[in-house]
Design a protein around this nucleic acid. Structure first.
Length: 717
RNA sequence: GCUGCUGUAGCUCAGUGGUAGAGCACUUCCUUGGUAAGGAAGAGGUCAUGGGUUCAAGUCCCAUCAGCAGCUCCA
């Protein structure tokens, strides 16, 4: 065995990690939660000789042992998995006829799926938690044992655990032996690892209950899923709950309504359709202006394209009908169009009988359309072709789900020479996607969204440089809004799959170039083999906000597919036609999502440069209103977003309202200021700054805007 | 789309089968003030929608729609 400090020890095969810990000190042994051997986390009380054959070998054949305590990040998962068992045990004690499904850990805790006859509600949580605490107090150990398949099957059958039996028969069909863990009367089929005994769990809480399905498939039997979380320390649980509260307090849907940023009216406007109210729109305009200016400086060409396009456009791109489920239904030039569309779909899924077919024939005839080539005796394929031919001849449009097909045609609209490459076309393009109802979420997931979309058409040789420039741009954008904690996820192809478009050489070169750029940039990035889209590798920016939540924002994607499908060509140095490579990129992602994220990140308190209301002038009384309006005019002329509070209340109330509205600065003006041409500036964060000449205040405020200063301090009671 | 929970004034929410409520916001009036809430009056409702049970339904039942949480999906 080799320990992290490099010391080596020799032990017989039955020695456990716990034995080694005891050998070092009693205190260490008490705090050991699990062990990591050659990178694999195992139970602390498993004999190392038994584990060794399952492990990957280290270079020199030694076993590298790390004893894990509550301080190691791997330990929390082990703890929570054990807590899931404790919860399952408690539920089985309290309810009859419980079938156990799976109980994994999640990012914030764990869950366990049960099949129970009675509905479990949050009101039942206290008694389940009480039972869990009893189990924890008993400090019983988790004991691992192995059974071969037949024995395991019989054990689960005896325990009336039919879901486990099914899992042994299907999911674990390849395994000759399977492991179980026993804790008192509770036995569960489980891969482990677990903590030595339940006493290590110092803090638990049940969080919620939700429905789920066996193996996540809606066709399977419904289950009840209990979510919980567990920690080594009550303080950590408290902290975690505080973070959840903090996230709730920052909910952009609540803040968006409170501060008049955006509105969604599902009943009268439509689900997932975001209305940008004036204040929210101001934030968006600032973001758009900022990015547009950057793009123009960085060699991009602005373009515009309409919101709809012929269905054939998306048939060429491959988006239709492949993604039909997440697109709005096509728009038809005639009433018959919709009928034929439904007809074709029913032919495809086989739900059209000859009776229905006759009725459809009669219906279109009544509408004055004839399909002389349509014969009842034809194959389904031929019938659909006839219908499709009719549709081709008659216009069908799609609300655009993506901008790229339009941009491909902008590329094609003119003859292209290698001298024009790279060609960078950008547009704040609004697209429509019929997201599933359950996915819609405020501004973060909507059905109509505007991408800060651009497509770069370039040669393979230019990919590396374009990628570098795009990464630089995205870094600059994130830094400008005060987001500096992020990493890049590089999605590469699965070497064992053949689903990919483009040659192997192209992929090798592109992946190498992307990796090289990321390495040179010194950025934090990780590679995800097999995660690439079929059409090319991609790099996604994963950004952490100020309370530690991770967001996927900007993206850069290489595409070998669309240039092929649209037969894009440029004339090379050799006077031959060549196919360009296409790069999709969006530093914001979508304006909706990005703004929603910013609202949460700043808890609604935007930094000066993004703020929809930078200054509010507060007249002491009506007597100073005239001066207040004059001050506002000067600030407005200096380019500041300014309003005047002309309500009748006292200045204290006006200040309170401005603070609650998260206005960056207040300018209090009374007779004294009017006389001397000054304003009394008050900072949202630091409070009263005293009186100063207007010019001085303007200089100070415009400087803060120009520098895009992000002052993180956010005080909201 | 699936499972569970929810739907009452612009917002946040009370409401026991028997006359529809509060706070904030809004309107008007009084107040004219110096760094986080001055006072008074008023207006505002098909209790999500459609059925059912009942002498009587915001309240109980069913369906639909929508929201929330989670699951599944995400070019």
């Amino acid at each position: 065995m080799r320990l992290p400090d490099g010391a080596t020890q020799t032990h017989p095969g039955h020695t456990t990690s716990m034995d080694i810990a005891t050998g070092i000190s009693e205190g260490l042994a008490r705090s050991v939660v699990a062990a990591e051997v050659n990178g694999k986390v195992i139970d602390a009380d498993r004999p190392l000789g038994e584990v060794a054959p399952e492990l990957s070998k280290s270079a020199d054949g030694e076993l590298d042992l790390r004893l894990l305590t509550s301080r190691d990040s791997e330990s929390l998962d082990v703890l929570r998995h054990s807590a899931a068992h404790v919860m399952a045990r408690a539920v089985m004690r309290l309810y009859d006829g419980v079938s156990l499904a799976f109980g994994p850990t999640t990012e914030g805790g764990f869950y366990y799926d049960f099949d129970v006859n009675v509905p479990i509600s949050e009101e039942d949580f206290p008694k389940i938690e009480a039972e869990m605490k009893k189990i924890i107090k008993d400090k019983e150990p988790f004991e691992r044992f192995l059974l071969d398949r037949d024995e395991a099957r019989k054990l689960c059958d005896d325990l009336d655990q039919d879901l486990k039996v099914e899992h042994i028969d299907t999911g674990l069909a390849e395994h000759a032996t399977v492991s179980f863990y026993r804790q008192g009367e509770f036995v569960d089929l489980c891969r482990g690892p677990h903590i030595p005994d339940a006493g290590k769990i110092k803090a638990i809480k049940l969080m919620s209950v939700a429905g789920s399905h066996w193996k996540g498939d809606v066709k399977n039997r419904p289950l009840q899923r209990l979510y919980g979380t567990a920690f080594f320390d009550k303080k950590e649980l408290k902290q975690y709950l505080h973070q959840l509260e903090e996230a709730k307090r920052r909910d952009h849907r609540v803040l968006g309504r409170q501060h008049g940023l955006f509105a969604i009216n599902p009943d009268e406007v439509g689900q997932g359709l975001c209305l940008w109210l004036p204040k929210g729109a101001r934030v968006r305009v600032t973001l758009e202006d900022f990015l547009r200016k950057e793009l123009l400086q960085r060699g991009y060409d602005p373009v515009y394209s309409p919101h709809i396009g012929r269905v054939e456009l998306y048939e060429t791109s491959g988006h239709f009908p492949y993604y039909r489920d997440s697109q709005f239904a096509p728009l038809f030039g005639t009433e018959v169009g919709g009928l034929l569309d439904a007809w074709s779909n029913r032919l495809e899924d086989g739900s059209l009988d000859s009776d229905g077919e006759d009725k459809l024939m009669a219906a279109i005839e009544a509408l004055g359309v004839e399909l002389p080539n349509y014969k009842l005796s034809m194959s389904v394929e031929d019938k659909r072709r006839v219908l499709h031919d009719w549709q081709l001849a008659n216009e069908r449009y799609l609300l655009k789900p993506m901008n790229c097909p339009h941009h491909c045609h902008i590329f094609k609209a003119q003859a292209r020479s290698y001298r024009q490459l790279p060609l960078r076309l950008f547009e704040f393009g609004t697209v429509y996607r019929h997201e599933q109802t359950g996915e819609l979420n405020g501004m973060l997931r909507v059905r109509g969204l505007t991408q800060d979309d651009a497509h770069i058409f370039c040669t393979s040789d230019q990919v590396e440089e374009e990628f570098r420039a795009t990464i630089e741009l995205t870094k600059f954008v994130l830094q400008s809004v005060g987001l500096d904690d992020y990493r890049v996820q590089l999605s590469l192809r699965d070497p064992d799959s053949s689903k990919y478009v483009g040659s192997e050489d192209q992929w090798d070169a592109a992946e190498g170039a992307l990796r090289g750029v990321l390495e040179q940039s010194g950025m934090n990035f990780n590679e995800e083999p097999g995660e690439a889209a079929f059409y090319g590798p991609k790099a996604d920016f994963m950004v952490r906000d100020c309370i530690g939540r991770s967001w996927q924002l900007g993206t850069v994607q290489l595409d070998y597919n669309l240039p092929e499908r649209f037969k894009l060509e440029y004339n090379g140095k050799d006077n031959q036609a060549h196919r360009p490579v296409m790069i999709h990129r969006a530093p914001f992602g979508s304006l909706e999502r990005f703004t929603g994220m910013l609202i949460e990140h700043f808890a609604g308190a935007f930094p000066m440069w993004l703020s929809p209301e930078q200054v509010r002038v507060l007249p002491l009384s009506d007597k100073s209103l005239e001066y207040a309006v004059a001050v506002a005019k000067q600030l407005d002329e200096a380019g500041l977003k300014v309003t005047v509070d002309s309500s009748g209340g006292k200045v204290q109330a006006k200040i309170r309202n401005a603070q609650l509205d998260l206005v960056n600065y207040m300018a209090v003006v009374g007779p004294k200021e009017a006389e001397t041409g000054q304003i009394a500036l008050r900072d949202r964060i630091d409070g009263d700054l005293g009186s100063m000449p207007i010019a001085q205040a303007v200089a100070r405020l415009t400087e803060e805007v120009k520098n895009r200063t992000v002052r993180q301090a956010v005080k909201v009671e």
